[in-house]
Write a protein that binds this DNA or RNA. Structure first.
Lengths: 231, 231
DNA sequence: GGATGTGAAGTAGTTCACAGCC
DNA sequence: GGCTGTGAACTACTTCACATCC
């Protein structure tokens, strides 16, 4: 259903990473009861130029109105469509330490289209407790069919946990552990590394390019490395 | 000190975001007692081509040996230098929920050059408790001089907390709240948004570009939007 | 009038291919 | 022989400028 017009495929990587930002802005606009937004308003909030916003949105088909900007409801829907939020996606989270809890308890992490299927931990003190409405299971239990696995385990356990996910037929992994993972071809790993964010910020601090100084302007990209290669 | 040769300035944004990845790889190599690494080995682990690795590293000056790759110790040092890890940087964390705790307790978040100066929360049940060796202070107390502020507060409190940081002369903010912040010109905000990572992964899942399918290859970039604009 | 959507130009980043050095 | 470092070619993304449509 809703196979209306998914015309232009192949959004560029930078575009894909900006769309969720636009969507968040549009949702905020909608929450304030506003109905229209234009490319320069989105651009200012997202930290990119209005032209970039228009280019990005043009990739989703014609959805603006010349002279009047974009309808926030339509825009929100179309971005969601483009990002695949209309397709169901089961997510399992492995490792219920502070980070795992933070993710699960966040009202924000599980976006439309993603459902929390199960939580896992190896600590018997945590297994059986309820977090975010889900009972934490033992990671030694059989895993359900899931499409995305989120790894919130310590670095030294990441590869092993990853192996179990791969064996359970999970083909997409969001890895919060500061550990490069080896996976078979056909599995995507997406890394999120907080310290890298901090280091980038520190670089700009020390070089005047970011704060106080000159020209960072937008630099809005993907938060991590996505790779998939042979074992 | 150590003002040896900081020759080529202006590393490109993609390069800056890859350097911490290389550094992590090199550290892992060193921990295993290995002394040399070559560009294709780094590239494979980082998910980029060997040429890209060499280009990135060439920006730090001549530091490899033709025919023999790079010395892991030297490489580690020079990347650290380039990223400004030799310059001291005080970090304060605001909001000690699960995420704030996860960051502070992570052995990985505070990289070389960054020192945890203070922790803050508004919850009187948390204020006064000790987390990661630091006593949590009330956010209404005067703030110390810090160079980087890390926001781990709920979205609806983010702007207010941000204002306090700006008033306390913090010019670089790492914002984990899903909230676009308005800051005065001269302040850098760097956004980290977990749900965006998940959405990017879901997009690739639904389009076959990432897992199972074809061509994601590397896509290694910045995790967020950095902007600074007028109030 | 005003903002979108887009060809054309410009810029930045990556990849190729190989000279240079160990 | 092997791997670095880099000019040259290529590709991708962004920005400009403006025709187009409400």
């Amino acid at each position: 259903m809703a196979t209306a017009r998914l015309r232009s495929r192949k959004l560029s990587e930078p575009t894909i990473s900006r769309l969720p930002v636009y969507q968040r802005i549009v949702e905020g606009w909608a929450a304030q009861g506003l109905q229209r937004i234009d490319s320069s308003q989105i651009g200012e909030l997202a930290g990119v130029t209005a032209t970039t916003v228009r280019r990005d949105l043009a990739g989703l088909g014609t959805l603006g109105t010349r002279g009047a900007g974009y309808d926030v409801t339509v825009l929100n829907e179309r971005i969601g469509e483009a990002l695949g939020q209309s397709i169901h996606c089961d997510v399992i989270v492995v490792g219920m330490g502070n980070l795992g809890r933070a993710l699960v308890n966040s009202t924000n992490f599980l976006v439309r289209g993603a459902t929390l299927a199960a939580l896992y931990d190896v600590d018997s003190k945590v297994v059986g407790t309820e977090i975010g409405g889900q009972v934490v299971r033992s990671f030694s239990e059989p895993l359900p069919n899931a499409t995305v696995g989120v790894l919130c385990v310590p670095a030294d356990q990441a590869q092993e946990a990853c192996n179990r996910l791969v064996a359970a037929n999970v083909h997409a992994i969001l890895n919060f552990a500061p550990q490069v993972l080896t996976v078979p071809l056909g599995t995507a790993v997406h890394y999120v590394d907080f310290s890298i964010e901090l280091q980038i910020l520190m670089y700009h601090l020390n070089n005047g390019t970011g704060p106080l100084g000159g020209g960072v302007l937008h630099s809005l990209g993907i938060a991590a490395a996505t790779n998939h290669r042979g074992a």
